[in-house]
Design a protein around this nucleic acid. Structure first.
Length: 549
RNA sequence: GGCCCUAUGGUCAAGCGGCUAAGACGACGCCCUCUCACGGCGUAAUCAUGGGUUCGAUUCCCGUUAGGGUCACCA
């Protein structure tokens, strides 16, 4: 067969050769050990946890090694593309501290290895498509969708493997005349790879995450170019990652089954194979069984979910980092205030299997992250959140930033900070009682104390209360108040003989708490009263007394 | 169904031929305490299974079972 002629028929306009490409995209001059990796998402506008997991891994490995991280847009499937997706993607990742050294950008490409958008690289792919055709390693296939469907049905009935191979590869060895006839008729075709693989042959392969794995040779004549001349993922992966001089490919392990084909492609094209790290998927429980987190069923897969739930980005980042490298937690404990970039990320710690996504754990991580923030940081992040999701609280916050910061300072700092907030969403119920507009009496007074006593206690306290009291004096007054009503002031004594008292100092402060905050629990009451201030405290106490009739 | 991956408590997981099998989340209990949130202490809970190899297997090998992934002109 005259492959040269076939190549001319199929790609008459292609004049460049693989050698020209090598010259245009020379090897990178980088220090020893520097990793070149990339993120290669489809511009669907949907940024998910998987993107973050993959991106975070690539980013850490690259930047820790002094290498290059670039962004390539895989828009070979125009059906799934949405406008503005690239911007959404870049901004979302930037949020999580994943920044690119080169590649597609909001304002256009950066770097010498572009274009970084696959739809702009058609000419480049065709150079290699022509090359493979000339070498007899690729051929046109004129099967229609219907043909392929029938083939599949036949295979199903015969209990054979699905796919385009062996006797099912009907265009594999067709004559030049047959091809010419189809071409002249204007029938569309795809370019298929002519596989010489045999599934009987197995090869050892070392994946950075999975370790040593077995590859079964591919015998399918897979599609290289679709009928519109755009490459499939596989072909684009080989050409792009070679020309962009990628040394490490990090991707989900759903790609593992097509790895043999990729290896085959790299070899056929004379490319050096990069290293691969195939990461296990994030799973979730679905009834009795686990399954991969799915875009359609699981809102928690989308990064926007965490934003709307009010998780700080640093919390999600730390949670994911902890899943990827479980020793991160220990490092964090030893370095509570250090920047995560100081942590030595290792591909060796990546779990070869998929991990169950643990929402409780995320909450805990987030709680710790927030507890380490300063009041100013908390205020700023909370402001961002409420601006988008809670206009009422936003208004209260901005009306008096100092007041808000004082509230957010309670129990903050020091060795054992309070951990009240796991998400920004929880801020409103936590702090609403400080604001008259949101204040409501939601909890009742302790049942063990009569209404009459409550009223008397509150009335008495109103006369004793001085905003200027320090904490000791303040509590002494509460104790004195308790004593005057016969309530125990010594909690130990009270617990030993509760029957000897109508109640304890805990009950007295409890009902003052309800009067002031409308709740049976709150942060330290002294701190709360200091922030509320004299006027508000008096007003609330008076209001409580009046409400009792 | 073919091919591939995986297998330590409810979850995330240390472990890399010899350990009373770490730690974290969650659960529960106790302590601290004006409530709460912290913090401290503690309890329950794990090597899927059957064969090998070995003086000795959670660890290495094989089978079984279970779970997962994948078999497109989607990535």
């Amino acid at each position: 067969m005259d492959f040269e002629k076939l190549a001319q028929w199929l790609f008459p306009d292609v004049t460049l050769t693989p050698e020209d490409m090598e010259k245009r995209y020379p090897e990178r001059q980088l220090p020893q050990g520097a990793i070149v990796s990339r993120m290669a998402p489809s511009p669907t506008g949907f940024v998910h946890l998987g993107n973050l997991v993959q991106g975070l891994t690539s980013e850490r490995l690259c930047h820790q090694s002094g290498g290059v991280l670039f962004l390539r847009i895989e828009d070979t499937d125009s059906k799934r593309e949405i406008p503005g997706a690239v911007k959404i993607l870049i901004e979302a990742l930037d949020h999580y501290g994943i920044r690119f050294d080169e590649g597609a950008g909001i304002e256009g490409d950066i770097g010498d290895y572009g274009p970084y958008t696959q739809s702009l690289r058609k000419d480049i792919y065709h150079v290699y498509a022509k090359y493979l055709t000339q070498k007899g390693m690729a051929y046109p296939c004129f099967c229609t969708e219907e043909d392929l469907e029938n083939m599949r049905k036949e295979q199903e009935a015969a209990h054979e493997n699905f796919g385009y191979y062996g006797k099912y590869a009907v265009w594999r060895d067709r004559s030049l005349e047959d091809i010419r006839r189809e071409l002249d008729a204007g029938h569309p075709f795809v370019l298929r790879f002519r596989s010489t693989g045999n599934p009987e042959n197995k090869h050892k392969f070392t994946d950075l995450v999975k370790g040593e794995i077995v590859l079964t040779e591919n015998e399918m004549d897979q599609v290289l170019l679709k009928s519109d001349g755009i490459p499939t993922y596989h072909f684009a992966h080989a050409v792009d990652d070679h020309l962009m001089r990628t040394t490490l490919v990090v991707r989900g392990d759903e790609w593992l089954p097509s790895l043999p084909f990729h290896v085959q492609l790299f070899q056929s094209l004379g490319f050096k194979l990069p290293k691969y790290a195939h990461i296990g998927p994030l799973m979730k429980m679905d009834g009795e069984s686990k399954r991969k987190l799915s875009k359609r069923k699981d809102p928690e897969l989308a990064l926007t979910f965490y934003e709307s739930e009010g998780f700080p980005v640093s919390a999600v980042y730390e949670y994911i980092l902890g899943i990827l490298n479980s020793n991160y937690e220990d490092w964090r404990r030893a370095n509570p205030d250090a920047d995560p970039s100081g942590f030595a990320f290792s591909y060796k710690k990546l779990n070869p299997a998929g991990s169950l996504f643990d929402y409780d754990k995320l909450l805990n991580v987030s709680k710790n992250v927030i507890s380490r923030m300063t009041a100013d940081q908390v205020f700023d992040e909370l402001l961002d959140y409420t601006k988008a999701y809670d206009p009422d609280l936003f208004a209260s916050l901005t009306a008096d930033p100092d007041y808000a910061k004082a509230i957010l300072s309670i129990g903050r700092g020091g060795k054992k900070p309070r951990k009240d907030l796991a998400t920004w969403k929880e801020a409103k119920p936590y702090m609403s009682f400080f604001y008259d507009a949101m204040f409501e009496r939601s909890d009742p007074y302790p049942e063990t104390i009569s209404q009459e006593t409550v009223k008397k206690v509150l009335t008495a306290y109103l006369t004793m209360y001085q905003a200027s009291d320090d904490q000791t004096v303040w509590f002494d007054k509460i104790k004195a108040l308790s004593e005057s009503f016969g309530f125990a002031t010594d909690m130990k004594a009270y617990k030993e003989n509760p029957q000897d008292y109508p109640g304890s100092v805990a009950d007295i402060s409890g009902l003052i708490r309800v009067a002031l905050t409308g709740r049976q629990s709150s942060p330290d009451m002294y701190a709360v009263m200091q922030i509320l201030g004299q006027d508000r405290v008096r007003a609330r106490l008076q209001n409580a007394v009046d409400a009792l009739g």
